[in-house]
Design a binder for these strands. Structure first.
Length: 270
DNA sequence: CGAGGGACCTGGTTGC
DNA sequence: TGCAACCAGGTCCCTC
C-alpha cells in the first residue's frame, strides 16, 4: 500500500497527536510481523515523544532513551483512536498515550515492522545503507546519472532501489517514468544525463502532488483519520492498462518488470 | 560486485 | 454458488 506520499500523509496525521505526550502503554496483540515485535518495545513506556519524523518509508518516533520505528509494509496503516475502542481485525499493536489517545497499527498482510531503536538511529541496520530522500537537494539528475553508469538493470527497478533513492515505489516509478518519457525497461546505464534531470524533476513533482492530495488510495489505503487519499484520480498510467494515453491516445501497456506490474505508453516512452 | 528470483502474509477479484 | 488461481502499494535475503 504505502509509498512515500502515503507514509508522509500518515506522519502528518500522527505527529500532532504524539508530540509532547508520554507513552503509557504498548499493547502487542500479534507480534508476528515481518520480524517479531520484541519486548524491547516496552522500553517506550513512560517516555516522552520529542519528535516524529520519516526516513524513507520508516516512521521514527523519538523518545528519551531511543525510540520506536514503524514500517507499514504493503498493507499497514496507522489510525488514531480512543484507547478503549474495540480493536478490529488485524489491529496488531496499540501505542497508548497519556492523553487517552491510541495509535493503532493495522496490517492484514503483516509485512510491516515495529521495533525499538537506540540513537544514532541513522546507524540502524535498516537505515544505514539507504540512499538520499527524493525531495532533498542531494538527489539530482547528476547523481542518478553517475550512479547508473555500467548498470544494466531496468531503470524502473533502479529508481525503486532504496540504496539509490528511497521512497519511490511501484506506482510513482511508473508515473514518473511516463512523465519523463522514459521506457521503464530501458537499461539504467543507457540513459543520458539530460533525461535523468527530467526524471528527477518528474519524481519530485509526482511525489509532491501526491502528498498534497493525501496519497493514493487504490484499494485500501487510509490516512490516520480513516479517509482515503485522492491522488488515484490523477494517475496517468498506473492501473490504466488498455486505456488511452493522455498524451497520444495509444493504449497503455502493462508489463511485468522485476516481478512488479509496470504501466507505460509504448509510443511516448522510449 | 550486480542481477534475478523466492520468501514473508491475507484478502479481494477473476475465471472455470 | 464454489473453489482455485492470481494479484496487490515492500524489501530482505539467497543464489548465480
Amino acid at each position: 500500500m504505502p509509498e512515500l506520499p502515503e507514509v508522509e500523509t500518515t506522519l502528518r496525521g500522527i505527529s500532532p497527536v504524539l508530540l509532547g505526550r508520554i507513552i503509557s502503554e504498548v499493547r502487542v496483540r500479534n507480534a508476528s510481523l515481518r520480524w517479531p515485535v520484541t519486548d524491547a518495545v516496552q522500553q517506550a513506556c513512560g517516555q516522552l515523544v520529542s519528535s516524529v519524523r520519516r526516513r524513507a518509508k520508516y516512521l521514527l518516533i523519538t523518545l528519551d532513551t531511543g525510540g520506536l520505528m514503524i514500517h507499514l509494509g504493503m498493507s499497514g496503516s496507522l489510525r488514531i483512536c480512543d484507547g478503549d475502542d474495540q480493536p478490529r481485525k488485524h489491529d496488531h499493536v496499540d501505542i497508548v498515550l497519556d492523553s487517552g489517545h491510541c495509535l493503532r497499527f493495522n496490517d492484514p498482510r503483516r509485512f510491516g515492522l515495529l521495533c525499538w531503536w537506540k540513537a544514532p538511529v541513522d546507524q540502524h541496520p535498516l537505515l544505514r545503507h539507504l540512499g538520499p530522500e527524493p525531495l532533498q537537494d542531494s538527489f539530482s539528475g547528476a547523481y542518478l546519472y553517475q550512479k547508473s553508469r555500467g548498470r544494466r538493470v531496468a531503470v524502473k527497478n533502479f529508481i525503486m532501489d532504496g540504496k539509490i533513492v528511497v521512497g519511490v515505489g511501484n506506482i510513482y516509478a511508473s508515473e514518473s517514468l511516463f512523465m519523463a518519457g522514459i521506457h521503464p525497461g530501458r537499461a539504467a546505464g543507457r540513459i543520458s544525463a539530460a533525461r535523468y534531470d527530467a526524471l528527477v524533476a518528474a519524481i519530485r513533482d509526482v511525489l509532491e502532488r501526491a502528498i498534497a492530495q493525501g496519497g493514493t488510495t487504490l484499494r485500501d489505503f487510509a490516512g490516520t483519520d480513516g479517509k482515503p487519499g485522492y491522488f488515484a484520480q490523477d494517475l496517468l498510467v498506473y492501473d490504466r492498462e488498455s486505456a488511452p494515453c493522455f498524451q497520444c491516445g495509444t493504449g497503455i501497456r502493462k508489463k511485468v518488470i522485476g516481478q512488479r506490474s509496470s504501466f507505460y505508453c509504448p509510443k511516448c516512452q522510449v
